[in-house]
Design a protein around this nucleic acid. Structure first.
Lengths: 353, 353
DNA sequence: TTGAAAGCGCTAACAA
DNA sequence: TTGTTAGCGCTTTCAA
């Protein structure tokens, strides 16, 4: 209609007026259309169509309904693992008509808490949380008072008795170690950093288990630089006579090791065999291609989000389930060449053997 | 106070009651504290403190004020470039007391539009947009009607006449090419994919410019797999007599090339020298370490977000500025060894020469 | 400098 | 099956 100045964004009452019904009836149609005569239903739907009406989520959530937003707090967004998870979480959120609000805690407990409160103020309907710290009483306290569901991702939330979704870190590491052992490497080193993080400590446990099962002492080394790794390798190579292999507990240690090996002019797998936890972009393009334990990144994100929406659907369910609702997803051993396998043997082996 | 059942989350009126003032006065304190007597100001602040009161953002934005959320639409969240940008944007948002809502468009124009509308419904205060497509009339139309500021990131928004923040793609590529040319490689190939994307096409332009300036014909090749690259390399190596170098226009082509070179048992830089646009985690750990043009990922995200908040502060400014408000950030040439430079020469050269 | 009152767009008792 | 009414928590005229 020309001359009609402020059409801007249509509101519920505009739809009601056009359809010749009350606001409530329109609201009913919006929320499932129960108890509405077919006649009015049709008229209202057509009015909605005609006006291009979309309900204002803000107003809706002020009234107490769901805000249509879920939150996600991760240590870092630029970390490929977490950004991969975030992508999956966002997709699931979209499937449920929700938006994803993310914040990075940068492993800072205060920032994490601050983010949480900020998200709460915005009335998020649920939260996926990769907590910065294993133990954080203030966070646990805050979480305890929450009325919205929370799901842990990659890091457990056991103190708050909340469910979480994680990889089978121990099994994955065990499988990696066993694979190296089977190659005949009598000495399998485990290089790691940040052992205080739950996923890492679980991997160390899986590694140690495999070593002990094979009648060997675990050889755990904390490394924070390529130099640390180099020192460690030199020590091992000058000492023992057994063939040497290295299991690196994450991406970063793998990179440190790769550099150390290059600097020492060592050959993989001839001088040192190698197998790493966590796949990465260039793993397959290296010389030799690196064998890895691959985490189901997308699956972790998806599962966490789905678990979250599940508990949002069933109010109270999360409180009852608690930790018991947790999920463990299997890892995969991706055999390439750094472990000693030949080029012909490229294959993926599922860790749930 | 024991026995007091539902304290839950304190609201503005609770603060007012405790401070013994009216709601309006509390609201004034919240919004800058102008026109409030020092006495009441103090009382109110103390009441806020005491109750741990934080204003409900939802209610606030329903009334028309800012929602305290900005949106970001990127092609992919798992792409390290975009997740790096997202991290920076989120940090700036936090500095401004805002939350970041991200969605991934997966290069799907419909999804992108859908996301935009969804974000609008949630009353975001501004938007950082890495548009999936260069030309999208429907999106442009939607953007034209927007009252909130929008800033493009990595992709221009020229059709909508909106500012954007991008790398100096052409200059970076030109510098890369010149560097290879200076090494004496008479043939410098440019391997690329998705030339329809603005950043890529700009790089191709920069490369071509450098070639022509050096009196050589550009050698552009579209490659979609390591096999494509291999075919291309074989052709070049069997044909010409001049030393060969390759400039890869992005991460993925670099990986394809790396694999092709390995499969062909070629040596870098002896048989083929190499320089790539975009740095990546393992670039420095490869053998030889790969020389790259590095984008200021963090800077791009930061600048886009800062430009956005700037225009949110100055309403209307973005409409007036339009395209002219755009920003170009310099890239850096990271000299490692794949380009033919010796190990001693590791250094970074700024592209704004 | 202050507060009462009127909404923002929607939902949910309640009554019809 | 419907519409009227009263808010959700905040901001904002407006009059005091």
């Amino acid at each position: 209609v020309p001359g009609n100045n402020p059409p801007s964004v249509p509101k519920l009452s505009d739809v009601a007026r056009l359809a010749g019904v009350g606001n409530t009836t329109v609201s009913r149609v919006l929320n499932g259309g129960i108890n509405v005569s077919p006649e009015k239903l049709r008229r209202i739907q057509s009015a909605i169509e005609q006006l291009g009406y979309r309900p204002n989520r803000i107003a809706r959530s002020l009234k107490g309904a769901a805000s249509g937003m879920i939150g996600m707090i991760v240590p870092s967004l630029s970390d490929t693992f977490f950004s991969g998870c975030a992508e999956a979480v966002q997709m699931v959120a979209r499937e449920h008509g929700s938006l994803l609000v993310v914040t990075a805690s940068h492993d800072d407990a205060d920032l994490e808490l601050e983010s949480l409160q900020q998200l709460l103020l915005h009335r998020i309907d649920g939260l996926v949380l990769s907590s910065a710290r294993a133990r954080n009483p203030r966070l646990d306290q805050e979480l305890a008072g929450l009325t919205i569901p929370v799901v842990g991702l990659d890091r457990p939330l056991q103190n708050a008795n909340l469910p979480s979704v994680m990889s089978q870190n121990a099994q994955g590491a065990k499988q990696a170690t066993e694979h190296l052992l089977q190659h005949g490497y009598a000495r399998v080193l485990c290089l790691h950093l940040k052992p205080e993080l739950a996923p890492i400590s679980e991997r160390l446990r899986g590694y140690s288990k495999a070593m002990r099962d094979a009648g060997r002492e675990p050889l755990l080394e904390l490394v924070n630089s390529p130099a640390d790794v180099a020192a460690c390798l030199v020590r091992q190579l000058s000492t023992g006579r057994h063939p040497l292999a290295v299991f690196t507990a994450n991406n970063l240690t793998a990179r440190y090791t790769w550099e150390a090996v290059r600097n020492l002019q060592l050959a993989i797998p001839r001088h040192v065999a190698m197998l790493s936890f966590d796949d990465f972009d260039f793993a397959d393009s290296l010389t030799p291609p690196m064998s890895v334990i691959q985490q189901p990144v997308d699956g972790l994100g998806r599962s966490a989000a789905e678990l979250l929406f599940e508990s949002m659907r069933l109010p109270g369910a999360i409180g009852e389930q608690g930790q018991r609702g947790s999920v463990r997803l299997p890892t995969r051993l991706i055999v390439r060449e750094s472990c000693g396998c030949g080029p012909a043997n490229h294959q993926a082996i599922n860790s749930t053997y």
